[in-house]
């Protein structure tokens, strides 16, 4: 049963990712990426991580993708890429390099990861309960948690400053005219 779930979700994740890269319309890309995020959150649930499942859905699929869709629609950038590509020779090279990267990653993971036991250890079933994760976050990892908070604050201030400066320049240009 778990295998069926895994393969179905993995197929959805791969299809979502491929369609995201290949779709010419940026709005479609964002929606396919949303599908991929949802599939990955189901995989987190299969890996017995309910807290990360919820975080993935609310932060990634909720907040981040809404931000992406807002910006795509605000800029009207949903049309296809310009037809003439200045670096056309990059495309076949990129495909080849990506293939090499994939072969490398598959080779390394096949050769270095030892075979997993067929049965999960009993402690693996409940180790990632939200209560455990919360207590680790607030004891061992309390300093990184605080730093993350500061990073988020700096990001908020940075976004406000970026928009403020753009608006200032815009009003200056209007005055000069």
């Amino acid at each position: 049963m778990e295998f069926v779930m895994f393969f179905a979700t993995a197929a959805i994740a791969l299809i979502g990712a491929l369609a995201m890269v290949l779709s010419p319309n940026a709005v479609h890309s964002a929606l396919f990426l949303l599908l991929n995020f949802a599939a990955i959150s189901v995989l987190f649930l299969l890996l017995r991580s309910p807290f990360l499942f919820a975080i993935q859905l609310t932060v990634y699929a909720g907040a981040i993708m809404v931000l992406f869709l807002f910006v795509v629609m605000l800029l009207g950038a949903e049309r296809a890429d310009a037809t003439q590509d200045r670096l056309a020779w990059q495309r076949p090279l990129a495909l080849g390099l990506a293939l090499v990267l994939l072969i490398e990653a598959v080779f390394i993971s096949v050769t270095t990861i030892p075979q997993t036991p067929a049965v999960a250890s009993p402690e693996a079933e409940a180790f990632a309960a939200p209560a455990n994760l919360g207590s680790v976050l607030l004891t061992t990892y309390v300093l990184p948690l605080q730093i993350t908070g500061i990073i988020l604050l700096v990001a908020i201030v940075g976004v406000v400053v970026l928009n403020q400066r753009a608006r200032l320049r815009h009003s200056l240009e209007l005055e000069q005219k």
Partner: peptide, 19 residues
């Protein structure tokens, strides 16, 4: 968990730059 929260900050700043 930390990767997800830093990614949220990165997306906010990156999209502001894009705008």
């Amino acid at each position: 968990f930390f990767v997800i929260s830093v990614a949220a900050a990165e997306v906010a700043v990156g999209l502001a730059l894009l705008v």
